[in-house]
């Protein structure tokens, strides 16, 4: 049995059912005047959801029929992998937290300050300790990009707490 395929198959099947029963009825507005089935706004989406149901079931079936042979070496590697995976999971959680912080504070901190903080944090999460490079990079790159977009493309970025400070 292929665990990934079984999970994916179940997920796709459930998602297709969710589309048919909840997402399409509540998410797609079908006007009362839409009498022609093929031209209705939900016609195409229902076909896609139907196709997803079929593909989900096929992947589930494939997953159930796949035989995975686990060798001794694979078990030994797996133990090492478990330890790596824990570290990986923590780092992955950290990266997602940085993404959330970056987006969540962009209106308050602004793009430049938010980017500087996110770049520094992301670099730290990588295990980088050469702060004499990280700090100037975290400051200079967002400022350079800010002026590049402002001067070349006339796109002002939200500045948040730096609004009106110095050249911003």
């Amino acid at each position: 049995m292929s665990q990934t395929d079984v999970i994916l198959g179940v997920f796709l099947t459930a998602l297709a059912v969710l589309f048919w029963t909840v997402l399409i009825p509540y998410g797609v507005v079908v006007p009362k005047g839409a009498t022609n089935l093929y031209l209705a706004p939900d016609f195409w989406i229902r076909i896609l959801a139907g196709a997803m149901l079929i593909v989900g079931l096929l992947i589930l079936l494939k997953g159930l029929r796949t035989k995975e042979v686990v060798s001794r070496d694979a078990i030994a590697t797996n133990i090492t992998r478990q330890t790596d995976r824990r570290t990986g999971l923590i780092k992955l959680g950290g990266a997602i937290a940085i993404f959330a912080f970056y987006y969540g504070t962009i209106d308050i901190l602004g793009v430049v300050a938010g980017s500087a903080a996110a770049l520094f944090a992301a670099s730290l999460l990588y295990g980088e300790k050469r702060f004499y490079v990280t700090v100037p990079l975290a400051l200079l790159l967002p400022i350079t990009l800010y002026f590049f977009f402002l001067k070349v493309a006339s796109i002002p970025m939200p500045m948040g707490i730096l609004e009106g400070v110095g050249p911003f």
Partner: peptide
């Protein structure tokens, strides 16, 4: 080094996503 490159790429991506429509929604 990756520890400098990928954080810098992240910042570049955010600037790029915003620039398309001047919208923080695009960053989301």
């Amino acid at each position: 080094p990756n520890s400098f490159l990928y954080p810098a790429v992240l910042v570049l991506c955010v600037f790029g996503a915003f620039a398309i429509n001047n919208s923080t929604f695009d960053i989301l």
